[in-house]
Amino acid sequence: MIEAFIKGITLGLLLCIAVGPVLFSVIKHSINVGHRGGLAFVLGVSTSDTTLAFISNFFSQFFTSLSSHKVAISIVGSTFLIVLGIYYAFFKKIRIRDRIKRTPPVFRKRDYLQLFLSGFFLNTLNPGIFIFWLTASTTFITHTINERLVIFITALLIVLATDIAKVMLANKIRTRLTPRNIHLLNRINGFVLMCFGIALIIRLVI
């Protein structure tokens, strides 16, 4: 179980350092509508992640009947991680299009649900997030159900905790989102994905 816990931490960190629209939306909402509005948005994102992780694991169970191909399926998933890592490290470009207001507007309580749903659908409709969870589910298909629970619950908790930290530190994070730092984050994210995919393949074939 310790190994599963470590893999869950690694999986969570992989998603945390991914530079995408959710990161900028969390920061933008946190500054525009305050910490409470930012937390409502983050809870919507977290609910989406939990739903996508469950769906991905559910569909990956169809592969369990192909026991003789489990290693091959895991290698395919690991290879996809490597390809995704190459894309993040060398090809992915990020543009910050939304201007962030410096003075939060008057915020009404009834708008919390709207922010929650905004976070949920923004994350759910991002194909990269679904592919991420589906790839992770396929990659860990050789693990027991208990191990998979530990892996994914740990990953989801880490992502949620990190998103809450982003909300609380929104102003400081925003000042550091220079093009150079965004490019650096992309490259780090890509290299981590590549190393993780290679390590999984090595573990499978040895």
Rank of each mutant, 00 (worst) to 15 (best):
T103M: 08
L193A: 10
L169Y: 04
S68D: 14
I173F: 12
T144S: 15
I198M: 08
Y88S: 11
S74I: 01
T142N: 09
V33E: 11
K7H: 10
I198H: 04
T135I: 02
L66E: 07
S48E: 08
A72I: 13
N171S: 09
I131D: 02
V19A: 14
S48C: 15
P21A: 15
F107G: 03
A18T: 15
M194Q: 04
Q61Y: 11
T175K: 10
I173C: 05
A161C: 11
G197Y: 02
V76W: 04
I129E: 05
T103I: 13
I151W: 00
I75K: 04
I182M: 13
F152S: 04
R36W: 01
H35S: 08
V205E: 00
E3C: 02
L177A: 04
C195P: 01
C195E: 01
I94E: 12
G12W: 00
L177M: 15
L66M: 14
D163T: 04
I75C: 05
I131L: 14
S56T: 06
G44W: 05
F41W: 01
I158E: 11
E147S: 10
I141M: 05
L185I: 11
R148V: 05
R203S: 13
S60K: 08
I73T: 05
S68N: 14
T175H: 08
R99P: 06
A89S: 15
L14A: 14
F59R: 10
A40L: 08
G38R: 11
R108S: 06
G190W: 06
H183C: 04
T135W: 07
S30W: 00
G12H: 04
K93A: 12
I145D: 02
